[in-house]
């Protein structure tokens, strides 16, 4: 463990103690925890947090370290040295990685949009038990959660539709998640019936009720579901392996795999001239690129999880 980590850890520890003392509303009947118990708890939590953030820390740091710093560290960098963004400049300079980023962004944006439209409509359409054909449609959806056809028929279908090497093969087969529809539906069903009733009396169509009343009331759950879909598209790796043979069309996850796991060298890695970034920095930069969109969106949506997932949990 490096000095930085230790400092961070001790900072965390003191913060923990302070918060426990000040922000506490420990009920009167509960005994104060023993010093040993409290220390144990803090140690476990610090270890858990470090286990998650530690690897990310060293990966980000390596990606922005200069070649000299990386050579001195012998690989991954733990102590910040000279900072250099050469790795990012190099991979974003219009090569394979840049292309892959564009593919991933395009697929994720298009896919999330299609999935959200389809899912919201379907969830609202199924949010009133007893409406026409409600139960058969619901069953049609649910059966697909019990039994999936398998890889081979799915592949044969996609190739039969002529979608091999098409970006649509990365979007359409997984565009509908019944699980997400059920979560949305659960939320829509919880909306006060009186509001919907008065909208109908005022002459609003179902479309208008959905877009102007139900959706504005469901921002939190919609955000969570959009994140689920978006992350799903962004992270998808195997469908690209299956359906995309043209390496120019590979999304970022496939490129990440070939550079970091299969040892293919990142373009530019070979010419170790002046100013060129070191191999590890390039690899780490690709890893960071694959993480950034998630890190950007995550904080804004994270606080809604408990609500969104709790509904799913209660229903599930």
């Amino acid at each position: 463990m490096s000095i930085i980590d230790k400092v961070q850890a001790s900072k965390n520890t003191t913060a923990t103690f302070r918060k426990q003392r000040t922000g506490a509303e420990r009920p009167a009947w509960e005994e104060e925890p023993s010093a040993l118990g409290r220390a144990g708890k803090v140690i476990i939590l610090v270890m858990v947090v470090l286990a998650v953030l530690g690897p990310l820390y060293t990966i980000v740091l390596t990606s922005i370290s200069s070649q000299a710093t990386i050579t001195r560290a012998g690989g991954l960098v733990l102590i910040p040295g000279e900072i250099s963004f050469a790795a990012y400049q190099q991979i974003l300079d219009g090569g394979v990685v840049t292309r892959a980023v564009l593919v991933s962004v395009g697929v994720t944006a298009t896919g999330t949009f299609i999935s959200m439209v389809v899912s919201i409509l379907c969830a609202y359409g199924l949010s009133r038990p007893g409406s026409f054909a409600h139960t058969p449609i619901l069953f049609t959806l649910l059966i697909t959660m019990f039994f999936s056809a398998g890889i081979i028929p799915a592949y044969l279908l996609v190739s039969g539709l002529g979608l091999i090497n098409s970006y649509w093969a990365l979007i359409l087969p997984g565009a509908v998640s019944v699980f997400n529809i059920i979560i949305l539906r659960g939320f829509f069903m919880g909306i006060d019936k009186g509001i919907l009733e008065s909208a109908r009396i005022d002459g609003a169509s179902e479309w208008r009720t959905l877009s102007q009343i139900v959706l504005p009331m469901s921002k939190a759950v919609t955000a969570v579901i959009a994140l689920f879909y978006g992350v799903g598209y962004w992270n998808a790796f195997f469908n690209a392996v299956l359906y995309i043979n043209d390496s120019a069309k590979n999304p970022l996850q496939v490129v990440l795999r070939s550079y970091v796991l299969q040892g293919v060298s990142v373009p530019g890695q070979v010419d170790v001239g002046t100013g060129a970034a070191a191999g590890p920095a390039l690899q780490m930069a690709v890893i960071v690129l694959a993480t950034i969109p998630i890190l950007l969106v995550y904080p804004f949506v994270q606080k809604h999880f408990t609500k969104g997932v709790m509904i799913g949990a209660v229903k599930g």
Partner: peptide, 12 residues
Amino acid sequence: LVLMTLPAVALL
């Protein structure tokens, strides 16, 4: 309502 479910049903 039925119409709204159709895109998802068609995709599935």
